[in-house]
Design a protein around this nucleic acid. Structure first.
Lengths: 394, 394
DNA sequence: TATAATTAATTCGGTACCGAATTAACTACG
DNA sequence: CGTAGTTAATTCGGTACCGAATTAATTATA
């Protein structure tokens, strides 16, 4: 008797409506300004026919416009530059932390219109609070009707398809379908994402991703995370879990980590742990504090941060070897200490990365309170406008 | 003055001719036997229309045939099972080592028809030697005309797009366009791949990949390598370099590695290094030898392998945490020692993997001399038949 | 001033997908 | 026996891409 064993249905693979060219065209115009259709095609490796068709669509939506043709270069028909209309759409990004929400408005070209910080309590009707924040932000804008989507970034594991927060330790949320609830309250598409993945997505559209198809985003904050970008898309593991760089093992005999294991990178480089283990710690040791002390050459703080940087560098080196990706962005609160971490970090990389992968490119992104919200806005822009999705579903 | 800065042309993104459904349909039929069109659609998450169209194409090519309809289940029109025609096509796989080549013939359904080992010298007109090997294999077959492609696996870095061996230390090849040369000599499509990637590709089509979209393939041989499979495709770093798991750092103060750095995993778990560092080594220590000695409980060899296994497990644990992939296949020559490595390996994993990712699934693939060739054949089948490519180009 | 050369952009025909509507081939029941 | 119900498979209309052929707009030249 023949029967199908272990029947497993896959989620629909790549839908045809992935609309890769639309995404690329908008992204390119946002960064490089007006370009002719032919230039767009050449830059993106698309067929000229595709560009013609997609630009026609975008023009009908009001996203782009033709500029008067310039003079032809020597001979032949002149190029007609196509220009982005930046304020054709606005997205609102929310960066959520345990005590406050940062709100930003972002235009089509990635420019930040307005930014604000408001108090927030994740335990008390969060959806109502967030809806109010978004509504007020919309009222303050010149063209409130142009708001097309909302993006939210939280630290923790998020299922982006259902816009559900699977678990967030810092916000004390678990299996919370934030996206759907807020979407109902606002009647706007809402996209929820892990904070690092949001930053990575934004880097793809508006940052380093313009010049590199592959890079690693090292996030140094309360946790030590990593976004892996391969072929212009964020590596997304099976469980939708974020990539836990902080729990690579550094020392089998090291101190116990919150995860229950020993000697994780997190124990040395996590923000809280890093401050607590600093030489001569006081209960109120801050990043600025530590930075000031480390500025004295040869001081205990200086060599402490040197060691920490080296550990980070060595761990990252292994990942660089493993994945063959040697373009690195460093971000997060702890980059405030970067000048003191840097030497050790680079040494650690040198000691571990195969010569094959040199030279490495390291870019440090200065951290501000608004980064989470900006990442969220960039992610929402990517999803709602660039990919033209109105629903998170795959 | 406005001009385009840093103009970078991308290689064409995802061509429309990627033909994902064809691939999936053939793969599914190869593993699950006859299925109706509707079942295929449901299993693969494809539209029924797509399956109808693709099955029609495949039938025209002779790759599949309809079986007489069974009786309907209860009510309604009965399903018409579609069956693979296994000998509609044959591929030949070559596994190249410094002294010999293993040749296998493989049918559409992944079955091995014939297998042979012939002496080989990589320094002396390798293309001519390989062409002769393939030609003889074809003559020995019942339906020589059915041969549609040749697959080759070599250890080292390979650019699969150009079928060029970038560098292979074991074969002493560098920038060798093996694929194109052999393709000309044979007048058959030739696909060249890194050995581990070939095995991973084969696992996707005919192995664990049928039930898991994501897994890690740990290759324990002369080198320590890893194939990362995410969403049913092999992770392929920017340089086309293979994923160098062996050069993750285990101990900053460890012995020097061939790569120039210190304390790489390779130093402890690479085949040569593992044998050389075993207790009471003799110049002729072999795997069997070491295995026999480790079979004595409490012997130095036993605890030595326990430690080695633990190191492997700990390193792998970090990767599991990083990528969130907890399905693991272990393969390679050194799996001959698996019964002695296993305890330490599992302990190492337990100590490092976040509880979040448990339970882990570990599958050990017994290693034979022919694995490389079988992987190559499977990879070629995947490319030539399943993806219907006649040229390696992306 | 016609016309040739040149480059830009569009149209046209073709493929791979999708969802919805339709047709095909059964069983069950009055 | 015929018709209603049910499930399988196909067709149909639509979108996103491609390459090749065509049309459009300009400069150079006889």
């Amino acid at each position: 008797m023949l029967h199908i064993s272990n029947t497993r249905q896959r989620p629909r693979p790549t839908p045809a409506s992935e609309v890769i060219s639309r995404a690329e065209i908008l992204g390119l115009l946002a960064e490089r300004g007006p370009l002719s259709r032919g230039e767009i095609a050449k830059q993106l490796g698309l067929g000229a026919a595709t560009v013609t068709a997609q630009v026609r669509n975008l023009m009908a939506e009001g996203m782009v416009r033709d500029l008067p043709a310039g003079q032809s270069a020597g001979a032949g028909r002149p190029k007609v530059p196509v220009q982005l209309v930046p304020d054709a759409a606005v997205v609102i990004g929310l960066g959520i932390t345990p005590r406050s929400v940062v709100v930003v408005s972002m235009l089509l070209d990635g420019e930040i219109l307005a930014s604000d910080v408001v108090p927030f309590n994740p335990d008390k009707e969060p959806v109502g609070q967030l809806a109010a924040v978004v509504t007020r932000q919309m009222q303050d804008m010149a063209h409130p009707g142009r708001t097309v989507a909302v993006g939210i970034s939280v630290s923790g594991a998020v299922d982006e398809n259902s816009s559900t927060v699977i678990i967030s330790a810092t916000l004390n949320w678990e299996n919370f379908d934030l996206g759907q609830q807020l979407q109902q309250a606002l009647d706007l598409p809402v996209f929820v994402s892990n904070d690092l993945f949001a930053l990575a997505t934004r880097e793809i559209s508006f940052g380093l991703g313009r010049r590199h198809d592959d890079f690693l985003l090292l996030g140094l904050g309360p946790g030590v995370g990593m976004g892996i970008v391969n072929r212009r898309s964020v590596f997304y593991g099976p469980g939708g879990a974020s990539t836990e760089f902080g729990h690579m093992s550094v020392d089998p005999e090291g101190p116990r980590c919150v995860c229950g294991n020993r000697g994780c990178l997190q124990v040395y480089a996590g923000l809280k742990e890093l401050l607590a283990a600093a030489p001569d710690p006081t209960p109120e040791t801050t990043l600025d504090d530590l930075s000031a002390r480390a500025s004295v050459p040869g001081s205990p703080a200086s060599s402490y941060l040197d060691r920490t940087g080296r550990m980070l560098g060595r761990s990252l080196g292994g990942t660089v070897n493993l994945l063959g990706i040697s373009t690195i962005i460093v971000t997060g609160e702890t980059t405030a200490l970067w000048e003191h971490l840097r030497n050790g970090f680079e040494q650690g990389l040198q000691e571990t990365v195969l010569r094959f992968h040199h030279p490495l490119t390291i870019t440090v992104r200065e951290w501000t309170e608004a980064e989470g919200a900006i990442g969220a806005a960039g992610m929402a822009l990517h999803n709602a406008v660039v990919l033209n999705r109105s629903d998170p579903a795959s």
